[in-house]
Structure formats: C-alpha cells, structure tokens
Write a protein that binds this DNA or RNA. Structure first.
Lengths: 356, 356
DNA sequence: AAAGCCAAAGAGACCGGTCTCTTTTCATTT
DNA sequence: AAATGAAAAGAGACCGGTCTCTTTGGCTTT
C-alpha cells in the first residue's frame, strides 16, 4: 500500500502517454510545454506524469533541439581565490539564465586545456568561458570558434582571437603602483609572478604568455623606463608556481645585499608568501621592504601592517563574461566585445619611503 | 586550397562511414573503439574521420549507453575557500576517473538545493556529491537514491540516509579546543556560526541542521557540562551568514561588560571578521580575547598574532567523497561507508590564560 | 444543410550514436 | 574440392525526446 514506487527503469513520455490514454506526441506537448493542447488533456497528462513520477531526460531533449543548456568553464585552478570568486560570478549569471556549468581545471597547462575543450565540445556545451593558459597557444580555441561555438575569454585576452573578452586594466594598475613606488624613492623594485618561461628566466614581456600578467609587466617596465631606470628586466622574477617555489625565490632574493626595497606580488598567494618570508627573515614591512599585491584577498586588511593591494573586480569579471556569453547564446550577433574593467589601488600600510 | 573546412553542421558517423566507403555500423565500431574491425578498414575510417574533422557526440552516446560520464556536485558556495578546496579534490579524482563535473551552488538554501538535484537528475548525471544544506530536509536526496543514483555526502551526514558519507571528526575537534580553553581558565566562551535557526536564536543543538556544525556545538556543550559550566547554550550564536552579519554580531558581543573571554569561530570567514572587530575595538588577542577558528585558511599563520585553528583535511574530504562515488559507479556494491577524517589543532598564538 | 476553417490530437520520422542479429568473407580442415 | 567456423562487415532497431505533417472534430458561415 504505502510502498514506494518500484520505478528503477526510467519513465518516458510514451509511458505517461499510455497511462493518460493519449498519443506520445500529445503527452510530449504537455510535458515539453509547447504546441497546443486542450485543458482536459493537459490535466490528464500532468496527473499521469505525477503518478508515474516522470522525469524528463534532458539528454534526449538536447539530442533533437541541439541545445544542451550547459556552458563549459575552463579555469586555471578553482582552488585559487581569484578563480573561485570569478566562477561564482559565472555560475550566478548562468543559473539565472537557465544554464548549468561544467567546470574543468586546466592547471594552467595547455595540453590539459586542450583536452578540456575537446571534452566540452563532445558534451555539446552551448558555450564556453575560458581563461587561456597561454595566449600564444590558442589553436584549439580558434577551432572551437570555427565550429560555431560562442566563446568568452576571462581575464586573459588574445589579439589574434576575435571573441568577447573581459579583462581588468592590469597595465594601468601596474603603472600606478610602480609610479608610486618610484616616487617614494624605490629603485630596486622586484616583480614576482607565477607565470613561467621555458628556462625560468625573464628577458622580455613578450615571453609571458598570460595576457593579464604580461600587461602588468609591460606597465611596470614602461614606467621604469620613463623614470630612466634601466635594466629593470632583471628584477622580474617568473616561475613562482607553488607556495614552496615562491618561498624559496623570495627568501633568496631578500637575502642578497642588493635586495629589493619593494616587491610587487602578482597575486595574493605570492603576496602572502612574501609576507611570511619577511617574518622569517625579520624584515620589517614597510620599514625594510615595501609590499604591494594584486588581488584584494580578504586577509590583506588584517595583517600587521595591512597590505596595499590592487583591487580587481573579480566577481564582476566572471559575471560580465557570463553575461556576454548568454547574450550570444540568445542570438545576439555583432562584433566581439572587449571589456576592460577598472581596478583600484587600496592604500593600506605596507609601502613607505625607500631608505636611501 | 588552404581553405578552412566549411563544416558548420556537425559531422556524424554516417558521414565518416560514407566517406570511408563502409557501413555506419563499421565506422561506429572504429570510432567508438568497440567490436572487431580489420586493420585496413580501421585506417580508412580513421583517415576519413580526420579529414572530416569528426567529433563524437557524447550526448548521443549517453543516450544509448545510459552513462553520461558526468557527476553532479552541489555545495553551499564555491566562493568559500572550504568548498573551493573540497571541489578541487573532487574534480581531480573525477577527471582521473574519466568523469566531468557539473557544479551547482545551493547558497545553503534547501529549495535551491532541490532544484539543483532536479536539474542534475534531468541531465542524467551518473552520480551525485552533495553537501546538504539541512540534514533534516533530505527527501529530495532520498528520492535520488531511490531512483538508483549513487550519492556521496560531503562534510555533512545524515543518520536517516544510508549512503557513503565523508566528514571530519568535528565533535572531537570542538571538544579538544573547548577543553583547552576551559583549562586556561575561560568561562565565558562564545561559539559563532553561520548556521541559522528560524528565529536566529539558539536553544539546543538539535535545532542546528548542518551536521558538521551541530556536532561541533554538541562537543562544545558536552565539555562545558563536564566542567560544570551551565547554561552555555546562551553563548552559542547563530546566523553569522555574511561578513556584515558577523561583524555586527561580534561587535555587539564584544562591547558588553560581560563579554566573552574566548571565541570559537566556526569557519575562517567568521574568524577573520572577529579578528577585524578586535582591531577596531582595540581588543588585544590573546590578551583581551582568545580566538580559535575552524579551517586552517592560508592567512591564519600570518596575522599578528597568528591564529590557532582546527585544521581539517578539506581537500581530502572532497577527494575521498569522489573516490567512494567513483567506486560505486564502477559497480562496487556493499553497505554505505561512513568515513571520518581526522582533524588537528594547529597551535599558534591566539589563545592565552583568561584574565580572571 | 453543406462548406469552410481552425484548434486539437495522432502518426511517424528524426537526432547521432550503440548494439543485436544476420550475412558475407576467407582461411583452415579432411 | 567441399565443408566448417570464426572474423569482419552490414542492416536496422533502439534510446527518449522534438517536430513536421496529416487527420479528426467541433463550430461558424451563408
């Protein structure tokens, strides 16, 4: 009597139709919410569906409609607060618009990214949001576009790819920060980033494949040149890919006699590690070292001293990318949008005059 | 000549078969990697597929095989470092096992969670990992199980649900922390959590629907009773759902004459906010207030003083849940596993003797 | 009352794969 | 050389929806 329905094999429209005493086509009209049906039949079918505990099969639906109702998202690492916040922005917009999100981490590795795109293509996602690991290596993205799949780029653009792109004004932010440090008398300013080059050494900004970071370094070097500081390329350090790497690099750098008087950290994970190293080496911030970090992570306001940061609209980055993509999915045509969101320097207490 | 293939409409096995001059069934055997085919035919089909830039349609494949190769993950909020790390654990294992992940945020809201499950069921995910918003309201999960879908619970269990569950030994951790505070002479110990009750007031642990948090509060209250501290229920504060809420609650609490001498923060977001409030109110840690937080967030080691925390194996939580699920998907039968991962108190410098 | 029209319902193809069942091919056996 | 049997290839149904095309039935029109 009170038994649970023994339905293990799934209930289909045909089953519902049979139970309601109508044709499959009619039941489908009611359940799919399309076409025209009389009220009496509608009720009968609805009742039958409820009685049978009918659940639509989105896969089958996607099969014929050609729309899967999903968007694929490929980011470097969801564990990084930057990406988790951006993804939050994406999922919020996607859900609102009736899409679900398939998430894949690339680990900033191009082959992994390619595999991810392939998988998402096979799953027939309706659109793609990607934060490309390397801007120089986007053939797989070009292919996706060619096959007609709407794509939006997140945080990292590509000059050769004509697609919707949402980035922050990284160059401008880096310029502002650098200018300020120079004005405070700093001459030995190090820039520390997770991006890597094949030989782990930096020569020119063109070697940096991550667009956002390349623009920052370009801004940094540009302002240095304006100020007649030469050879600042030597102060750019690449390959701070893990906290351990960062730790070693920062420690090595800060132990030399000609150590930097200021460090610009390219993300909050690096900023945090530099902070830790200063503790260990008993270097005062900002007395012995000025520190500026990209990404206004929550902890930066609570350290002693609090850290001056570049606040990026991270949630907005994801939100905007998703909005652009949804518009495309709803049929909007037109040229690719390239949106640059403003950043803001949050002045706290980790920078000061350079001791001359 | 060098023109890009004008393939906008998708290439199917039938197209490949035709081009290779074989039957659809044979082409499918090659492309699907099943059945038995001669080497010559295999090569012909492979060549044709490459020439046509054939991409398999996973949807169609799922249709017949009944497996979609995806697992659905429902968590409270991907923006929370706790979940983003757990999700990282899940996605790593899933990818390894050949599954992709569909991620949905519930916002700790039961209706949203129900909708998420419905969506995932419709998308025919092969399995489900859920961090239920309320343990008391799991009818939708029970239904999913009844329909034969493997499910694993993350961080929060349910006594009434007989499924694979991975949690941390929250009760034990809370007991240890509470015992230590009491030994240091603390009597006014507040527990602060984001979990809420309908009227935002706490009466008994049974009102708390989030299992992990309920177990912690039970541990906290239990040790207090052992120590003959009565009425400690009044020191449990619920509803710290946003940083702003938390801020107000902590400030109000710490401004009273009978303010707590110690606070246990139920997650790192709350711990951070309490820390900020102490700054504002010029209360010294640990001089005026001892602070312990759950979740060993990265910043906790870098504050002044560094914060004593309960380290949970967050990545491992996700990893283990995903492993259990994958085993089920590979056909493993048997009783539900209930795995309890160990936590560890990381002693830093935010707790001290209570000033009597 | 016959013609005309439109809403409502039914029949069946189709999406792109998989898979069972049948037929063909070809090497081996006696 | 005819019989045997396994491997290779083909034919076509099927998964669960959507959607086009056709048929049915009730109501208006003159």
């Amino acid at each position: 009597m009170d038994q649970s329905p023994p339905r293990n094999t799934s209930v289909t429209v045909a089953d519902v139709a049979h139970k309601a005493g109508v044709s499959k086509a009619t039941a489908a009209r009611v359940l799919g919410g399309y076409g025209t049906v009389s009220d009496r039949v509608r009720e009968a079918v609805t009742a039958a569906a409820r009685a049978l505990d009918y659940r639509p099969n989105e896969l089958a639906r996607s099969m014929t409609t050609g729309r899967s109702g999903t968007i694929g998202v490929v980011v470097g690492d969801i564990e990084n607060p930057f990406f988790s916040l951006a993804v939050r922005g994406i999922t919020d917009v996607a859900r609102q618009a009736g899409f679900t999100v398939i998430l894949i981490n690339s680990g900033e590795d191009v082959p992994a990214e390619k595999a991810a795109i392939r998988t998402l293509l096979a799953k027939r996602v309706d659109g793609l949001i990607v934060s490309p690991a390397k801007e120089s290596d986007v053939e797989h993205l070009r292919e996706a576009i060619r096959s007609g799949l709407p794509l939006a780029l997140l945080d990292r653009g590509s000059d050769t790819l004509d697609v919707d792109t949402v980035i922050a004004d990284d160059r401008h932010a880096a310029e502002g920060v650098t200018r300020r440090l120079i004005a405070l008398g700093h001459r030995r300013i190090a820039y520390l980033t997770a991006c890597d080059t094949p030989d782990h050494r930096f020569r020119t900004a063109a070697d940096i494949n991550t667009g956002s970071v390349r623009r920052r370094i370009e801004g940094f070097l540009g302002v240095c040149r304006e100020a007649n500081l030469d050879g600042m390329e030597d102060w750019v350090h690449v390959g701070a890919v893990t906290p351990e790497h960062t730790h070693r690099m920062a420690a090595a750098m800060l132990r030399t006699p000609q150590r930097p008087t200021a460090i610009i950290a390219s993300d909050s994970l690096i900023g945090l590690e530099v902070f830790k190293v200063c503790r260990e080496l008993d270097l005062g911030i900002p007395g012995d070292l000025s520190l500026v970090s990209f990404h206004d992570a929550d902890w930066t306001s609570v350290t002693t001293p609090p850290v001056t940061v570049v606040r990026q609209p991270v949630y907005g980055l994801g939100e905007t990318a998703a909005k652009l993509l949804v518009e495309r999915l709803n049929g909007k045509a037109g040229a690719a949008n390239r949106i640059v969101l403003r950043t803001e320097v949050v002045d706290r207490a980790s920078i000061a005059d350079a001791r001359v």
